[in-house]
């Protein structure tokens, strides 16, 4: 499909918000489930946008900016793949292909982010200079400019993507044989594991490992919804923490050894 003037403006605004959030990480406009839905909404393809967003969200689960490390860029991946999905005009059957293109886009976005984070160095040097004159207005302006730069990081590619002719996007999508697209869809089912692996690596220690296996086993009972599983998990966390507290105070009053028989023997 082609975009009318209003749609182009709205898509650029959504892309700008996603770009800002890619660095701020506050409102979460860059998360696929929000960004793809918004692109779908402003282009009149809401249903496809939501489904693409939900699917990408599961893949992007472990993508997080930790310390100075930069995660694969969810903002560019979601915005661009949603635009491609809408342009391709294949409806929900275009979702696996859109997801397949999202991955290289996430890598491209990562490099753009690193460029922006480097360009921000001279911006804060400008703040240093402004601070010497107690020029509050200039510091604020520079901060806003830096955020704007991050917004443009996504808005410009999004805009360019909209003006590539439909034919080019269609041809590129149709050029993929079904073997590749089906294979991509199968790969997509496995890629989710990478996100989980990143999260587990961050969180796992000897104490909490057993809970992963309990969750894994209980999940096989397909009658229990995710919300139900969440309730079980919260309940177990409370039980564990309470028991741990009891064990702690019991040991404390018993002289710290936590072994009542040993304490009695020591008293002799």
């Amino acid at each position: 499909m082609t975009f009318n003037f209003l749609q182009v403006i709205l898509v650029v605004i959504v892309a700008f918000l996603a770009g800002m959030e890619g660095i701020l990480d506050e409102f979460q406009f860059h998360q696929p489930i929000v960004a793809c839905t918004l692109i779908g909404l402003v282009t009149g393809h809401l249903a496809e946008g939501i489904i693409l967003g939900g699917t990408l969200q599961l893949m992007a689960m472990g993508w997080a900016n930790i310390g100075a490390a930069v995660a694969p860029d969810a903002a560019l991946a979601s915005v661009a793949s949603a635009i491609i999905l809408v342009k391709g005009g294949q409806g929900t059957s275009g979702v696996p292909t859109a997801i397949a293109v999202a991955i290289p886009l996430a890598v491209a976005g990562l490099f753009l982010t690193m460029v922006c984070r480097t360009l921000a160095v001279p911006i804060v040097h400008g703040m240093d200079a402004a601070a010497k004159n107690a020029d509050f207005g200039k510091i604020e302006l520079l901060q806003i400019a830096a955020i704007g730069m991050q917004g443009l990081r996504i808005a410009i590619p999004a805009c360019a993507l909209m003006f590539v002719s439909d034919q080019v996007v269609m041809d590129a999508l149709n050029a993929l044989p079904p073997l590749i697209t089906d294979g991509m869809a199968i790969g997509g089912g496995m890629v989710v594991a990478v996100g989980y692996a990143m999260v587990i690596n961050m969180m796992a220690n000897k104490e909490v490992w057993p809970f992963l296996f309990i969750g894994f086993t209980v999940a096989a009972i397909s009658d229990i919804t995710l919300i139900g599983l969440g309730i079980i998990a919260v309940a177990m966390a409370f039980i564990y923490l309470n028991l741990e507290e009891k064990a702690g105070t019991g040991g404390g009053s018993g002289g710290g050894s936590g072994d009542p028989l040993g304490d009695i023997l020591n008293d002799y």
Partner: peptide, 15 residues
């Protein structure tokens, strides 16, 4: 710690 327990359980389920 509570968040880790919750997280590990649900991750197991999500896998």
């Amino acid at each position: 710690k509570g968040a880790s327990i919750l997280g590990m359980f649900v991750l197991g389920a999500l896998i």
